[in-house]
Amino acid sequence: MPFAVVVRRYPRATGTDRVRMRWLLWAAVVDVLVMLSLLVFPQGWTDVALPVAVGLTGAAVAGIARPGLLDIDRLLGGTLLYGGLAIAVVLVDLAVVGGTTALLGRRDVVLLALTVVLVFYAPLRDRLWRVIRRFALGRRDDPYGVVAGLAEQLERSDEP
Rank of each mutant, 00 (worst) to 15 (best):
R22I: 08
A65H: 07
M21E: 15
P51A: 01
R12T: 10
G63S: 06
F3I: 14
V54W: 05
G44I: 10
F41S: 15
P67S: 06
T115P: 00
V61M: 10
G83P: 08
V97F: 01
A86R: 07
D108F: 00
R8A: 07
V52L: 13
S37L: 14
V109I: 10
W23G: 02
D126G: 12
A113G: 09
R18K: 12
L25F: 13
R9E: 15
V131N: 10
W26P: 04
D71W: 00
L137I: 09
G138W: 06
D93C: 05
Y82R: 04
A86N: 11
L24K: 09
A60W: 05
L114C: 06
A65I: 15
G145E: 07
V117I: 14
V117G: 00
A88Q: 05
L56R: 08
T115Y: 02
D126S: 14
R130W: 13
D108S: 02
G58N: 08
V110F: 00
R8Q: 06
R8Y: 13
A4H: 12
R74G: 12
V32C: 10
D71G: 06
G145T: 04
T16C: 04
A113L: 01
V30H: 09
R20Y: 03
V96C: 02
L128C: 11
M21N: 14
L94N: 07
A53T: 04
Y121L: 03
G145R: 00
Q43I: 15
F135Y: 11
D47P: 09
T115V: 13
G58Q: 06
W45N: 09
A53P: 05
P123K: 03
G58R: 03
M35F: 09
L111S: 01
L25C: 10
G77T: 09
F120R: 01
V52N: 05
